[in-house]
Amino acid sequence: MSDPVFDLTIIWAVIIAFGIIMYVLMDGFDLGQGILFPFAPSEDARDVMMNSVAPVWDGNETWLILGGAGLLAAFPLVYAVFLPALYIGVFLLLAGLIFRGVAFEFRFKARSSRYVWNWSFAIGSTVAAFAQGAVVGAYIQGFAVADFVYIGGAFDWLTPFTVLTGLGLVAGYALLGSTWLIMKSEGDIQDWAYRITPWLLIAVLVVFAIVSVWTPFIDPFVADRWFSGISYIWLLPLLALLCAFWLMRSVHQRRDGSPFVATMGMFIFTYLGLIASKFPYVVPPDYTLWDASSAHESQLFLLLGLLFVIPIVLVYTAWTYWVFRGKVKAGVGYH
């Protein structure tokens, strides 16, 4: 193969990492609406919740598909190990996303059968969030791989640890959802969102604490990285906690926008902390980014198209959010 002039693997790692956090933050708050759906104070509140994310949810989910295709192109080993290892989980994730996706469209059109789509939205969102959390847990755990092929069982991914990370992400997405709702709603619905946010934050922090303590015991590599000496990566959990504190304060002061920004901050620093724990291993315990990457010319071939498209998608995404900015009023939907 041709001699790479510069290392595209790192560029691709940054692109994929960026895509993942974009997906988590953006689909997170709209999955959160579904998780909170059964607990909403009224059917009007449900209308507002759904309307607040209706214009943007499908754009949010296209990042997931791009991530899947991008992984196959740039890091095929990740694609070819994660998907077989998480076989049942991937099915649950996709089925969940399909059910909640169609619920968006059909709930507003339905009258007597509306409750069916309420449950379709709630269960689909929760299952999808749980499955994504379990993926994170499975990544931390590592995979049974021999000679670049997954050799473990169907349920290796389902352990007490991954159940915990699954529940953690459900709580996390619910928190993103409730703070998004604070920003997008007013009156009774906003009051409700303010009330539930501290409880969700506590749930997230509890899982965060348990996972943080548990992880070094699961993976000695992580223990070594964090505790072998004083390190600047200690700043990351510190910043995440700082964001949690900011969130608490801004909810207390009944601010509109900052709770959501603070929650995004928690997610970003936790995510960076996870990357810091595992880098450069993408298929733990044995394979690094470079082991998992595709041929240089394949990475280059796709990069050319992507560099052209990503800015357009980002501009369009920003424009959509701008068009649909402001509060969503009860009874005045987009429909």
Binding site: L72, A73, P76, A80, F148, S294, A295, S298, L302
Partner: peptide, 15 residues
Amino acid sequence: SYTSANFLGPVLSYE
């Protein structure tokens, strides 16, 4: 997928 990713990955991604 793993064997043919160098070709199929970019092509499917372009789609």
